[in-house]
Design a protein around this nucleic acid. Structure first.
Length: 480
RNA sequence: GGCGACAUGGCCAAGUGGUAAGGCAGGGGUCUGCAAAACCCUUAUCCCCGGUUCGAAUCCGGGUGUCGCCUCCA
């Protein structure tokens, strides 16, 4: 099967062929750590984590680089307001971001370069652009001459002449043209700066990414990601800078953008006060349910966030885990030798396998892949039944192992990790587990006496503590 | 003003020409002391109007609507 990717540059689905066989280089624009990360930041992170896992599954050696913009106007402003050094602010929010990513099951990137670490490389790139006539110095600032780059506008589909009228571009007498952008900014008093051939200054925003890509991945890369709002001007400018410096074209083979995430229909904005912070979300909800929610729509569609949608994902995630446990318990029990219909389970397994990989190959359609997972769960639950309802079958264990193996593989690619806490607390030697076991015993004794008032009381009280009791033909199950 | 995306059942969401995946919610059943979980059954002709085609949610044209970008932003 061939992987197809919808490329922002061509606006078409293209078969994925890496520059170098067996290797994939990916750069994804990261965050500016001047405040708490919000749910929107998690979308590209989770999406690219899945891409990375899938490419790995397909046998590629994947190298992923994501930056932190730790020099920026917002950080400078924040530092002035609070009196806290820029580096300390950045460090705090970078750590918080990484902790949230860990909880969401996002694997760490191979490199997390920071703008402040590549100042020499940035100065070299800016100098190279000046030398080639693509940039000019003006009162201590250095600007990129947009008009000089003939392909300017090819990524975003904009023509330079369209951008002039009505556009709210920054007007500056220092620029030759309103379209030009700053590669290097002279530091004002009190602002951080680094010595350069043009005086004390700091890098403009766009240049850091091109430089980091070049430094960590080379002049040309396979995939570049980020939110759609970055297509113009950020990525457009990046292309111009990178190709002007290196002469290598295309800078990026596949531009893969993720759509934005809205909050109850509106753009998240601090001024509106409708921001959902990631650390709160991840601490108050099962991070895996959050992850499932983030994967519930294709990356190129706007995703809306609401409590209702999160609850929906939480229920769905519980369902997946129930099926997972169901198969696991069967396999853990050597006496289990029967299924409702072993051949149907086998058939369903192979259909789900095909559907899952077809969806993933189709521009990483995680929602389609999830549909296959849910179908697999349904098949497992329908056929892995209590043994008194099962039909003994010599292939039963093999069939369940296949289905479970596929489930583990699919969840692994999607990065969804079921709770590993055993199905029964009795397997855990801690005091709490033992106490619950005693209560379950007491309750079952009461049930035998038909003392349902006592039985329900115990069940309800445990439920209040988040401990769920389920009576099944094979005994009472305990779930946390 | 320019560029672009999207409009599918109560909510969310697939579908890249052949007769509508999946999740949540709802209804009916099975199971259960009752629950829970699970399983089975059940709810759509795809914004509107034209056109192309044997055949379109899927292609083309025109409307209407929602949203995003063009200024910091995942």
């Amino acid at each position: 099967m061939a992987l197809k990717v919808c490329n922002t540059l061509s606006r078409q689905y293209e078969e994925f062929v890496p520059l170098e066989e067996g290797k994939v280089s990916i750069y994804v624009c990261g965050i500016t750590p001047y405040d708490h990360s919000h749910i929107g930041h998690a979308r590209p992170a989770v999406f690219w984590d899945v891409v990375r896992r899938y490419l790995y599954h397909k046998g590629y050696n994947v190298r992923l680089v994501t930056n932190f913009t730790d020099i920026d106007d917002k950080l400078i402003r924040r530092s002035k307001e609070t009196g806290i050094p820029i580096a300390a602010i950045a460090e705090k929010y970078i750590q918080e971001y990484l902790e949230c990513m860990d909880k969401l099951g996002v694997k760490r990137a191979d490199v997390y370069p920071r703008a402040s670490e590549v100042i020499p490389e940035i100065i070299d790139a800016v100098q190279a652009l000046i030398d080639k006539g693509y940039a000019y110095e003006s009162s201590g600032d250095v600007y990129f001459r947009a008009g000089r780059f003939l392909d300017y506008g090819k990524l975003s589909g904009r023509k330079p002449e369209d951008l002039m009228p009505g556009a709210r571009v920054e007007v500056s007498e220092l620029k030759e043209s309103p379209l030009d952008w700053a590669l290097w900014k002279r530091s004002k008093p009190g602002e951080p700066g680094w010595p350069s051939p043009w005086g004390n200054g700091r890098p403009g925003w766009h240049i850091e990414c091109s430089v980091m890509v070049h430094k960590h991945l080379g002049p040309q890369i396979d995939m570049h990601g980020g939110g759609t709002e970055l297509v113009f001007p950020h990525h457009e400018n990046e292309v111009a800078q990178a190709e002007a410096v290196s002469g290598a074209e295309p800078y990026v083979q596949y531009w893969v953008h993720t759509e934005l995430l809205n909050l109850e229909g509106e753009k998240m904005s601090k001024s509106l006060g409708n921001v959902v912070y990631l650390y709160e979300l991840v601490n108050n909800h099962d991070p895996m349910a959050v992850r499932l929610y983030l994967l519930s729509a294709h990356r190129r569609k706007v995703l809306d966030f609401s409590g209702e949608l999160l609850r929906s994902a939480e229920k769905g995630w519980e369902r997946i885990q129930t099926g997972y446990r169901n198969a696991l318990e069967f396999l853990a029990n050597p006496a289990a030798q029967g299924l409702r219909d072993a051949s149907k389970l086998a058939e369903a397994t192979s259909q789900c396998r095909a559907a899952f990989f077809e969806a993933m190959d189709n521009d990483f359609s995680t929602q389609g892949a999830l549909a296959a997972v849910f179908d697999l769960i349904t098949a497992i639950n329908a056929h892995v039944v209590p043994q008194d309802q099962a039909v003994p079958d010599p292939h039963a264990r093999k069939r369940v192992a296949e289905a479970f193996g596929l489930l583990v593989q699919c969840l692994g690619i999607l990065g969804l990790v079921p709770r590993t806490a055993g199905p029964a607390l009795s397997q855990e030697p801690d005091l709490g587990g033992k106490l619950v076991d005693i209560l379950v015993d007491v309750r079952n004794t009461a049930r035998q006496r038909k003392d349902y008032a006592t039985a329900d009381y115990i069940r309800n009280k445990l439920a209040e503590l988040g401990i769920v009791l389920e009576d099944t033909p094979s005994g009472t199950k305990v779930r946390m």
